[in-house]
Design a protein around this nucleic acid. Structure first.
Lengths: 260, 260
DNA sequence: CGAAAACTTGACCCAACTCAACGAACGTGG
DNA sequence: CCACGTTCGTTGAGTTGGGTCAAGTTTTCG
């Protein structure tokens, strides 16, 4: 009766369980949601700002996606980066008009779930609704941290902070040791995410390399000194609300690798 | 049986109705929520970052509140400003630990509603839950716009944008013509909200005054040229998702006062 | 293998910051 | 209701972090 083990929606349930309790029945109800698979090429739009809100909601199964907005001047701001298990446009679904873009950062696989079906499940199991609502709130918490990052930290701190966040989030989703992880962003995209120019991001990377913090091999990043990177980025993972599922949300500023 | 007309929670229902349909029964269920009143002095903390999440959720009845976070350096970033009708810490309630501060900007009156009671109502009426969830999403939409504002706009645009947002939001809640409205923020707070220093905010204000955009009388602001202010702030109110309740969410960039 | 995209580095510039001093408004207690 | 300390606003002078422009090199990918 359940599609529990075979469902491709498993990454979503896994992510929700990081912050919310779900009974086996509830988990099964989620895993059984009808959905269709789609593959999207790197750079392609998934949702475009100004579109009428889509009537399905989109889950990242593999690869990386990001949200962005564009200013009148044409400058782009990257708002968040999403990976396996993230529901990438709950944000847009419940509202009338999409207020931001969603784009593929790498080539990605996504599952489309009809919004109607989600409503059905949450009406039947309010607890699932709370888990999804909580997911929206964590999303908002991350925006707030980004606001602090861009508004009140200098360039080196901003870049370090972004790297820490991506390391910690990847450590929570994939089996990886957290010190050597995938960094699918170009320097220009890192600039757009941190409110800097690509030229300046490049200089920051050089200086961080010289200081032995990271070793940015193309497309993947080796964190050579996690405690110092964390310090350099004024980073504490509390805002990710990863809860007990991941051992280092509470580990504070020292001595742990993102894998705990 | 209903407390419909007398309930002090009316501003909340009014705000939810800006973006969500609520049946009379649903509205009454909200208005009938048990709550207690509290008055908080200007500057005092309502919720402090790091606190265990409060078990009630807080509604602004009068005055202004704001959210903030502090960087390791001690620098403060204001994340949002809240007025009459805003649920100011839904964000914190569903999570384990408060990830940001909530403070009174002016002296404020607040209603405290037990989180338990909210859950009861939303379990009984899923539609109310969706309205509150949507409220959280609009909150997130506003964070995203602030991210764009701070990350990709210059000082004059940032300040103008903030003024436009506050004007439009006040026009939607209070009976005011939208061109002469209350601005309870000091220049230093405006700086904290826009990622600037108070000194620079002061210079921007002077130049905007000279250009005839605004007339910042102490504690209240007269917008002398709304269309040009909107243009100067690269502002479009779509991200506020005020919907049909307010005539100018869709009015675009020209020729309307914030009151429509 | 060739074109396009991404990275790298140097030289120069400017928007916003820092430091500092002073006047104006506010609020609080006597 | 006035005195006085404190916060807020204002302005100038000098500095700087990060931006701009430009030219190369390296990588990627079709």
């Amino acid at each position: 009766m359940t599609t529990r083990n075979s469902s491709r929606l498993a990454p979503m349930v896994r992510k929700l369980k990081q912050h919310s309790e779900l009974s086996p029945t509830e988990a099964d109800a989620l895993l059984a949601l009808p959905n269709r698979l789609a593959t999207i090429k790197a750079g392609a739009f998934v949702v475009r700002e100004g579109d009428k809100a889509p009537d399905d909601c989109i889950l990242v199964l593999s690869g990386f996606a990001y949200r962005s907005k564009t200013a009148g001047s044409g400058a782009r701001q990257i708002l968040s980066v999403h990976l396996r298990g993230d529901l990438v446009d709950l944000q847009n679904s419940l509202l009338d008009i999409a207020d931001h873009n969603v784009q593929a950062l790498t080539s990605i696989e996504m599952a489309y779930i009809q919004w109607q079906d989600i409503l059905k499940v949450t009406t039947a199991c309010p607890n699932i609704g709370y888990a999804l609502w909580r997911d929206t709130m964590i999303d908002a918490s991350m925006s707030r941290e980004w606001l602090l990052n861009i508004g009140r930290r200098n360039a080196r701190q901003r870049v370090s902070h972004l790297l820490c966040e991506l390391a910690m989030r990847q450590a929570a989703t994939t089996i990886c040791d957290g010190t050597n992880y995938v960094l699918p962003m170009t320097q220009s995209q890192i600039g757009d995410a941190t409110g800097l120019t690509s030229v300046h991001v490049n200089r920051i990377f050089r200086s961080m390399r010289e200081d032995g913090l990271v070793n940015a091999d193309r497309r993947s990043l080796i964190i050579t000194d996690w405690p110092r990177l964390q310090q350099a980025g004024d980073f504490s993972g509390a805002y990710l609300h990863q809860g007990a599922a991941n051992s280092f949300a509470s580990a504070g500023a020292h001595g742990v690798s993102p894998a705990g």
